[in-house]
Computed example of a mutant assay.
Amino acid sequence: MRRLLLVAPVAVLVAVAVLLAATEYVVARPSHRTKNVAYVPATAPDFDPERHVLDVYSPKKPAPTAAGYPVVLFIHGGSWTSGNKNIYTFIGRRLAKQGVVAVVINYRLAPPVHVPEQAADCARALAWTVNNIKQYGGDPARVFVMGHSAGGGLAALLATDDALLAAAGLAQNPVRGAIMDDPAGLDMYSYLKEMRYSNDAQYLVPFGKDPAVWKEMSAIYKVRPGMPPFIFYLGGETYPSISGSSGRFRDRLKAIGQPAPYTIIPGRHHIPMVLQLYWQHNIIYQGLLKFVGA
Rank of each mutant, 00 (worst) to 15 (best):
V143W: 04
A168N: 05
Q135F: 04
I87F: 06
D139S: 05
N131G: 08
W80L: 13
R196N: 10
A184C: 14
G208V: 06
L109P: 04
P111Q: 08
V115Y: 01
A184L: 09
Y88H: 10
R142M: 11
V115P: 00
A102L: 05
V130D: 05
W80V: 12
K85P: 05
A156S: 15
N173A: 12
L186C: 06
Q172H: 14
Y191Q: 11
K209V: 10
H76D: 12
S190N: 15
P116E: 01
L109D: 06
A184T: 10
L192N: 11
A127L: 08
D121C: 07
F207M: 14
R94T: 15
D139T: 09
D187E: 09
L154T: 02
Q135E: 14
G153F: 01
V175Y: 01
G138P: 04
Q98G: 11
L95D: 02
L109V: 06
K85I: 07
N173L: 05
E194I: 09
A184W: 09
P111H: 00
K97F: 03
H148R: 01
A102M: 01
C122F: 00
F207P: 09
W128K: 06
S149F: 00
N173Q: 04
I75T: 12
E194V: 14
P140I: 11
G177V: 09
L158A: 07
A201L: 13
A184K: 03
P211L: 10
L170A: 13
G77N: 08
V101Q: 02
L192S: 13
S190Q: 10
D187V: 10
A102D: 01
F207Y: 15
E194R: 15
L154M: 11
Q98T: 05
A110H: 02
Y197C: 06
R108N: 11
V101H: 00
R196Y: 08
Q98N: 15
V175R: 04
A178H: 03
F74Q: 10
L95A: 14
A127V: 08
L95G: 04
L109Y: 00
Y197V: 11
T81S: 13
D162A: 13
T160I: 06
F90W: 02
P206M: 10
P111E: 07
A110P: 06
T89R: 02
V213G: 02
L164W: 02
V100C: 08
I179D: 05
G78D: 04
Y197H: 14
L192V: 09
Q172S: 14
L158W: 02
A110K: 01
I179E: 07
I105V: 15
N131Y: 02
A125S: 13
A127H: 03
G83Y: 05
P183F: 04
S79W: 09
A96L: 03
G152A: 11
A171I: 05
F74P: 06
G83R: 02
W80C: 10
Y189C: 10
A110R: 01
L186H: 12
V100N: 02
P183A: 14
Q98W: 00
A167E: 08
G153Q: 00
L158S: 05
D181I: 14
D200S: 11
A110C: 12
A150H: 01
P174S: 08
R196S: 14
D182R: 07
V130Q: 06
A123S: 06
W128Y: 14
L95Q: 07
A167I: 07
I91D: 10
P116Y: 02
A201S: 07
L164D: 01
T81D: 09
A168T: 11
A123C: 03
K134N: 11
R142G: 07
G151N: 04
H76Q: 14
